[in-house]
Design a protein around this nucleic acid. Structure first.
Lengths: 233, 233
DNA sequence: AAATTGAATTATGAATTCATTATTCATGTC
DNA sequence: GACATGAATAATGAATTCATAATTCAATTT
């Protein structure tokens, strides 16, 4: 079945210019999405033929797309033996989370200094909704809002390199981060952390925001490793 | 003239397995090198034909290599219009350096806790050589040793994600970082910073190493922007 | 039966070909 | 002469073809 690709967003066009992104980029976007949402599981082997048929493209752009995803670390290419979807081990998560924590802490610090009142209000509003999702016991809603808050803080940092770098690493740990079981007590603790972060942001307490975000991320890592649904090595 | 590619290092082989990297990866490595060493200048337009002839490969692996470099941010791909070598503006450097500073600070903190005595000694030794290069007025030597120190600290952090992430951003600002004019006073100041960093590392003063490295990187950014040989926007 | 060999099959790697889009440059117009 | 138009050229995008390596599986051996 060919679910041929709709015209997504632009690739690298001149500002305000219309230009369809290269097929390879569209395929990379689509495949990245499938990986992040878990339709294609970590550790799974990829057969080119299957994907060319799914996307309705030839092998050339597909293979280019694989190179892109490999550069991002989402897939592993093994010469003459195809590709497998990356599946970060506990050790790799233990590496990646502190980096993510450092980046988010930096984003929080920048946001505390640069965020507009509108951005501040939006983050506060999202934090309120985060509490509501806990009270409604709505886990999917919680994950979504949580992600929106982290992204809002990143955006408020106004640092494109920071945003891009964070996004790349965040994708690598995405499943572990958003599909881990969340115990009730961890859930409540995480919310409390978020409320403190929002408060510190509103107070524009730069250092405090940084500290809290770093601690929040490291607590998340601890919770994930404790749940222990990732491969140790 | 074809300077066909020698068998570089492996791509993603099983541990201890022999497997030549894909041609695309070899081309990406070679081209990355050309960009970093400045043989191909930032802003320059790339013609596929020229590179296929230079490397002695067909367009297919070359285009795959371009996708890899584009994912790394070293080149910009514009649909139907080829590729240009990225040239970070002052604004982009102002974004990238603080991220690099945060990453190196984190690396320094980890190194302060994890580095072996051998690694410590090596960093001290390199720092001594750094002073020697200043006293010999050997700028190329200084840049090289400086880079080796930063890499040694990264390596001592023992965090693969951190190392990879740092490398990606470091490449983007490589030319600005290592080809900027260095005034004598900045040179002396930088050396002094390095000696303090080495001392704090030896004392395993985690927080101090982090602070010093961050300050060192930000001072570097200031020096680069002051030299003003990058495009403002 | 388990292990090993090797042919057949299948998958990936890379070059080539075909298609489409930009760019260049000559021609004509104002 | 400056500008606009359009054909010729050259570049990139993608499919196809050819080459090579890996996998499968039947036949054989131990």
């Amino acid at each position: 079945m060919t679910e041929s690709i709709s015209n997504g967003r632009l690739t690298t066009p001149e500002a305000g210019m219309l230009a369809r992104p290269a097929l390879a980029v569209q395929v990379a976007d689509a495949l990245r999405e499938l990986i992040l949402e878990g339709t294609i599981q970590g550790g799974e082997k990829i057969r080119e033929k299957e994907l060319t048929e799914r996307f309705g493209v030839s092998r050339t752009p597909l293979r280019e797309a694989m190179k892109i995803l490999a550069a991002e670390g989402l897939v592993e290419l093994i010469p003459n033996r195809g590709a497998i979807i990356s599946q970060p081990s506990a050790a790799e998560l233990a590496d990646a989370f502190p980096v993510l924590a450092a980046l988010e802490a930096m984003a929080g610090e920048q946001a505390a200094e640069r965020a507009t009142e509108v951005e501040m209000a939006e983050i506060s509003r999202l934090t309120d909704r985060l509490r509501a999702s806990l009270e409604a016991n709505d886990r999917p809603g919680y994950f979504e809002i949580n992600q929106a808050i982290h992204n809002a803080i990143l955006a408020a940092s106004r640092n494109e390199t920071l945003i891009r770098t964070h996004a790349t690493i965040a994708r690598l740990v995405h499943r572990a981060r958003y599909q881990a079981n969340l115990t009730r007590s961890r859930w409540e603790q995480a919310l409390s952390e978020h409320e403190k972060i929002a408060a510190a942001l509103n107070a524009r307490d730069t250092d405090q925001v940084g500290r809290l975000l770093k601690a929040h991320m490291m607590a998340k890592l601890t919770a994930i490793l404790k749940a222990g649904q990732v491969s140790p090595r």
